[in-house]
Amino acid sequence: MIISARGLTKRFGDFVAVDDLTLGIEPGTIFAFLGANGSGKSTTIRMLIGLLKPTAGQIELDGVDVIRHPRAVRDRIGYMGQKVSLYQGLSLRENVEFYAGLVSLSGAALEQRWGALRERFELGDAEAERPENLPAGIRQRAGLAVATLHQPRVLFLDEPTAGVDVHNRAVFWDLIQEEAGTGVTVFVTTHFLEEVDYCDRAAFIDAGKLLVDATPEELRRRYSGGYRIRVGVAPGALEPAASALRAAGYTWCAEADGSELTIEALHPAALAALHSATRGAPVSIDQPAMADVFRRLVSAGAPP
């Protein structure tokens, strides 16, 4: 585990902001940490990165005891919030030099690292601009580039795409997936629930308590009516494959004519069974929207 938190609790007076939270995250995972406004997400992140001391519990990040040695984790993590922590009044390049100084990166090593980031994050035109003059999408990309300057092992991104347009959100998630592809662990919060599908796992907290921690597909299985799949074949044409489809988890929609199926989760074996059964016939897959999954999760409250 690169992040391990056990029994994490934070009280502010009588108010319990985070309540006995336990999480374990493998390296290279994109981990979505979700919850309503005020549910304890930011407090949890502040404890995980060593900025806030928990009332109780243990945290280990990349082998470092965060509570005993909060400063020792700083080199290992990158952080970016909704309000990107770039200094106004300084150009992006000046911000880069400032942050590089904090992580002891300079000279040729800085030029090489920043040069690569500038190209990959398409920031060449933004380098001389001040952050406050950049459109939100480019400013967020610049914030991510600066947060990864020192090649951290774990990236904490707190609502990185809030207020960012759909095109720049797509670009941003391509970059996050590339980072994860190199082994970086990404801990991200978002209210754009369709973004959960970019993640390997998603946890949901409510009033400081962990309600669920599962893959996006497992969340769909537990908290939706499942997928509906229409196959463009004559009524009854799927019958020869009926037993294989049932074994993979499919059921037939009662109200349809025999060419419409439902399934709780579309796991690889289920896709393979569908592939064999349909033999190239047109298929239309209706996937439950993540926003609806979370509406149902919240109304269900406790884990099933």
Binding site: G35, A36, N37, Q82, E159, A162, G163, H191, R295, V298
Partner: peptide, 9 residues
């Protein structure tokens, strides 16, 4: 912007 799904609803 930045508001959870239930408050948005």
């Amino acid at each position: 912007a930045g508001v959870d799904v239930l408050a948005r609803d």
